[in-house]
Design a protein around this nucleic acid. Structure first.
Lengths: 340, 340
DNA sequence: CTTGGCACTCGGATTCCCGGAGTGCCAGCC
DNA sequence: GGCTGGCACTCCGGGAATCCGAGTGCCAAG
């Protein structure tokens, strides 16, 4: 009972603070929310909430501000994902439908998400690991240089130049292509390594150097570089809430420029499609301890292939952001699924 | 004679202002530079320079600051491009040499440039228009969906999904591929349109819908999307000189997020390899009127294929920046040329 | 044309002061 | 026991007043 009101107070504090950016006091709280009690009572509740570590005051005799933990409780127990309106959903759909290829889908999605949430949006390309080989092509650039092009069923194209050290004849190239395609077409990328394991041995001794180089490169492509691409949009929005980080936009921008960081951000919960919210210090990434990250997996067919999400100040509109992120993920999933 | 000293004063003002970031007065000027005259004399010169619109004072009784025009004169007549040291050149070379493919070359270059100049760097992908077709591949995704992959000799790969409306048989696809490759392999992209002009007619009447769709898509790829890709790095550096734009980093970030803007920035002087410097308001781009843009073309073989450069505050170290930009462009050119 | 001198201006930093918002606590009341 | 009104206290933030110094423009003399 009393406990309930305390949580209601916490919710009110979060909502007001998110809306106004200013520490919220007991009086304005009772004015703006119908809590049915007096400011003095609220003050007692606030003291309790502060003891629990859910809110804090910037300085004595100022209003209260939610702590990371406070937001945590808010997100976990006090808020519901706000669904998009029909109009918004239509807008999303029509905006994304115009995409012509995978790059385009990714780009449109991430920009859309940045616009909807007015924060920094990011999207990870569909993981190569989980997809299958749709086509593989070898092109002779020079006698000792082969271009390897791998097309995954997600529409993603990977290319790589292989230095073979020894010269490769057109004939050898053709045979390599045939054998490789035989072996790997339709295979899941994770299985490629195994499929081509003994391929080298099927060639003449003097050809093996070249074949081995190509195979090695192929393995690198499918294994090492499997999900290195992340696309970013809306960094300009960072400027909007510069004050939130007391002017330290710098480390945030720096963190966002590091591909590795972004991958960690998105990659950590890769296998699930649940909405994940990491608040403030919950982010282990250096430089993002004043931000919250909302991510969700998106799928192709019934498999989660990657994550997308947004990065914003801890004082963000969680229900709205979560709604936007989820909605965009669904549409992206739908488009990828239709396209296959 | 007198004119000469005035220019020397302008140069000194620019150098000091760039270094200290503070309006420079007559006294500190004579202290830091051996101009051989008294502050009073300098004041007269300054008054003259102000009349000419080359310098200005932020407020009465403050030091002077160069105007855009002042920087212009400085760049055109008073400064020399500062060559990189041998050590720096070695560092550039070894850093870029490790690149495995075109994406990698672009990414490494742009990051390197951002680091060297400590500003925002950008690089345009080698123009498709100026290069030739190295390979073209068609892959049947579904009976009515064809993936078109175009590989240019610059190493750039373009892909596109074509909706054919009517079903395409494996046989038709194979014939299309053969004919297309026959026609366009080795052709300059600008000539592709002409080469495939009457291709559709060489097919049976009932196949023409599909062929036309593929051809149309190919044309779009080579014509419309010819140079739409620009890569960016170092936006975090913007935060460093936030004060330069009196806190308005926002419009700059916004401008930089627009691909179209970036293309205009780089594209305007596409055919030349001369170092171009656009200062302050000389940039027609909204939002970049407080920045200077230094660009230069880079080549593959003996042809300029695209531009790269940096965006920074008008009070930048022009000689140094120009040196870095030029050096990186040369190395990129060298790598692209070797790779062909 | 240069120079030293001099009066003047003005921005920026510093200090001081005050008001208002907010708190914590207490005593009384339901 | 929980709620409430009252009250003393704290402290931030903003505004006014002040001061300092860097810098200028101009003038008269060299």
């Amino acid at each position: 009972m009393v406990e309930d009101r305390r949580l209601a107070v916490l919710r009110a504090i979060v909502e007001d603070y998110v809306a106004t950016h200013e520490p919220v006091g007991s009086r304005s709280l009772v004015e703006r929310h119908s809590l049915g009690v007096s400011p003095a009572t609220i003050r007692n509740d606030m003291a309790a909430l502060e003891d629990e570590g859910l809110i804090a005051q910037p300085h004595t005799s100022a209003g209260r501000v939610p702590t990371d933990q406070g937001y945590r409780v808010f997100v976990d127990r006090l808020s519901q994902v706000k669904p998009m309106s029909a109009a918004e959903r239509r807008a999303i759909g029509s905006f994304l439908d115009g995409a012509v290829d995978l790059d385009d889908v990714m780009q449109r999605s991430v920009r859309l998400l940045a616009q909807l949430t007015r924060q920094v949006a990011l999207i990870q390309y569909p993981s190569l690991t989980r997809s299958t080989v749709r086509h593989l092509e070898l092109v002779l650039l020079t006698p000792t240089r082969v271009l390897l092009v791998l097309i995954a069923d997600t529409g993603r194209v990977e290319q790589r130049v292989v230095e073979t050290a020894v010269t490769v004849s057109d004939d050898l190239l053709a045979r390599m292509r045939t054998r490789l395609v035989e072996q790997v077409n339709g295979a899941r990328l994770v299985d490629v390594a195994e499929k081509v394991a003994d391929l080298t041995e099927q060639f003449e001794r003097d050809e093996r150097t070249a074949v081995a180089a190509v195979v090695a490169s192929l393995l690198e492509t499918v294994v090492e570089r499997h999900e290195e691409r992340v696309m970013l949009a809306g960094t300009a929005n960072l400027a909007r809430f510069g004050e939130d980080f007391h002017g330290a936009v710098r480390p945030v921008l720096e963190a966002l420029e590091e591909q590795m960081v972004l991958l960690r951000l998105l990659g950590e919960s890769r296998t699930t499609d649940a909405l994940t919210v990491r608040i403030g210090h919950e982010n282990e990434v250096e430089g993002l301890s004043a931000t919250s990250v909302v991510t969700v997996g998106y799928s192709r067919g019934d498999e989660i292939v990657a994550q997308l999400g947004v990065v914003g100040p801890t004082r963000m509109d969680y229900p709205g952001t979560m709604g936007s992120v989820r909605a965009v993920a669904r549409y992206v999933g739908r488009i990828l699924t239709e396209q296959q």
